[in-house]
Amino acid sequence: MDTPTDTAMVTTLEKSRPRSVVPPPPDRGNSWWGSDDDPQSLAVPSWQFGMWLGLGTLTVLFAALSSAYIVRVGGEPLSFALPSTLWISTAILVANSIALIQARRLLARKEQSFVRWLAVSFVFALGFLVSQVITWSILASQGVFMTANPHSSFFYVLTAVHGLHVVGGLGALLRCGVHVRRRSRWPQLVRAVGMTATYWHFVDAVWLWIVFLFLWTSL
């Protein structure tokens, strides 16, 4: 469906102006542009541009929650010790980003082994969720619940909202897996893996920001 057809389309408009030879249109996230369609466009494909816009929206979501946190606690220092599993979570997510960079690079070189790195990323993501559940249970065992104080409230909210985005990332990885199984063509794989990797880098960056935020308030 992505293949540009060479068949000229039937036209009933009064006059069709034959265009000089145009290059086939790039895949713009919309599979049904005719061969003669030649959209004026940005330097990036639509899926990538849309992805960035969407991540912009999510950035505002986390910025809103973070600024609400900063305003709400008003300089009062963090009242509980951050569990050390937080560092394990951090390490996992950094490693996850590296795995996805690797996967994308291998895919760009058309090497099959990119699939392995996607699998590694998937395992990391699951590992992160497990580590997060442990973090929460450590806090809960110390009596630091959601309602204990504004710090813990925001800690749970921020990590939970982030956790949901991690779950979303798992979905994106699964979708890449489906493409691999279906033996989708290369451009589609590039697109799927590219979107997934971009998204995951964002999720990982948000995590680093959350960790930084709580380190900052614990000073």
Binding site: L53, G56, T57, L58, V60, L61, A64, L65, A68, R72, M146, T147, P150, S153, V157, V161
Partner: peptide, 25 residues
């Protein structure tokens, strides 16, 4: 819309927590 609506979304989440989980946002 893209850059303003998330603030209300965040507010709605926090308000639901205040309503049901006893937080004090």
């Amino acid at each position: 819309g893209l850059f303003a609506f998330p603030a209300l979304f965040a507010g709605a989440v926090l308000l639901l927590l205040d309503r049901h989980l006893g937080t004090s946002f």
